[in-house]
Nucleic acid binder design. Structure first.
Lengths: 228, 228
DNA sequence: CGTGAATGATAGTAATACTATCTTTTTAGA
DNA sequence: TCTAAAAAGATAGTATTACTATCATTCACG
């Protein structure tokens, strides 16, 4: 099969759709590489333009500013991950098994998905860990939220919450638990690599310890054999 | 009693100790107000200087750059909160009661502590929610960590982890659970206010719903009457 | 009373975050 | 195939940011 996965993005995220031109796709590709390499703070449109052999003005024709570009690639990631979740849990009936698969997808290094030619998902995953929460931890949250820029994240959260409810229909905080699992899949991995004393996993281990921690937490919380 | 609480800060956090001069204290006070008001991204030393009637160069004599200043006030907060935790849980023996107090201190709006004249803890608490994780979500984490700039956060996390172990000595992820509780005390409140569909609390409610969610999660996870 | 530290005042620089304009190339449709 | 509009390239310019440097003034102390 030779299928190119196309993700339709919210039009408010860009000035000109980067998926519809070669230059646009190269902007996304090089942005991901540069942000991965130097971090979002050090990332500028000037550096990006030099790096990819175009001009600053060229980049500004696609994105209003670097924050919007970050929101774009983060939203892209959540849409892509949501698709992965749907694909990988399809035909699974047991919600427990579904949740385990989701935790694995959230917390484990992804391999580059070859059906999206200009996006390197493994770099993108690392970017989400370090820069993802910066998309909404700003004074503009509510405005950005009004434009539905965070919809992919919220949709995934809602989907996970619904499976949580399948596991235990009496649990009262499915959405908060879902957002906790999503955020911690990233934070615990970040802590493991950079501030290991905030976790119980030693630095050399891979993400499997994070997966085990999250699964343990999730299923203890959802366990029906408890007091209440 | 007329006691002024003095917090001894890591010397790497500043160029000149802001606690030891009027100007220094005013820098802290006005920084907190400005960051609270406009967010960290829009905060500059120039604006701060104009705001408080000094010059940019004056601020640069105290702090290398605005990131260090943020790390300073965040570290100050964690030191102060750790003290609050010790104070409020002193003479309590039951670790469950202790943990409940800690969750309340973490997730509830603090009132301004009058024994720290130049710091408004209630504003600071809001800053920690929105800007706190930006202190470590950078390319400099490891370097900053080497200088022990995150020690107050890590100390508090370790302290909470030890009480978690008191609750259930067999629980295997006390530190990860502690950092989860700390982070979620902030994120769930942020979500509640700005991205409410990521939580199960409606926007008008106060932080009590966050407290209930965190306590519920914590004690379900630490419950001994489970399968394993 | 003198001196050294802190502060104030001012200036300057390189980089950042844009906007504008004009030319050239591409490409989509008549 | 021609043509016109859209996209991209090239260049310039501005306000703000993130600093560094210098020199004069104040102020606390021994």
């Amino acid at each position: 099969m030779d299928i190119e996965l196309q993700i339709k993005m919210n039009e408010k995220l860009f000035l000109r759709n980067p998926e519809q031109s070669e230059l646009g796709k190269r902007i996304i590709m090089h942005s991901i590489r540069l942000i991965y390499k130097n971090g979002f703070e050090a990332f500028t449109f000037k550096k990006l333009a030099e790096n990819m052999g175009t001009t600053e003005a060229g980049v500004y024709r696609y994105f209003e500013n670097k924050h919007r570009l970050l929101v774009y690639i983060v939203a892209w990631y959540w849409t892509w991950l949501h698709y992965q979740v749907m694909y990988q849990t399809n035909n699974i009936n047991d919600p427990v098994v579904k949740l385990k698969m989701i935790v694995k997808l959230l917390a484990t290094t992804v391999e580059d998905d070859l059906s999206t030619s200009y996006v390197d998902e493994s770099l993108l995953h690392q970017i989400i860990i370090t820069e993802g929460s910066k998309t909404y931890l700003t004074k503009r949250v509510s405005e950005d939220n009004k434009y539905k820029l965070f919809k992919p994240y919220k949709d995934l959260c809602a989907h996970i919450a619904s499976i949580i409810l399948e596991c235990n229909p009496h649990y009262r905080y499915p959405k908060s638990l879902a957002s906790t699992i999503i955020e911690m899949a990233h934070f615990q991995n970040f802590f493991k690599d950079h501030l290991p004393s905030l976790t119980d996993f030693s630095e050399n281990k891979d993400e499997s310890s994070t997966v085990v921690f999250l699964e343990d937490m999730l299923f203890r919380v959802l366990s029906k054999d408890d007091l209440k």
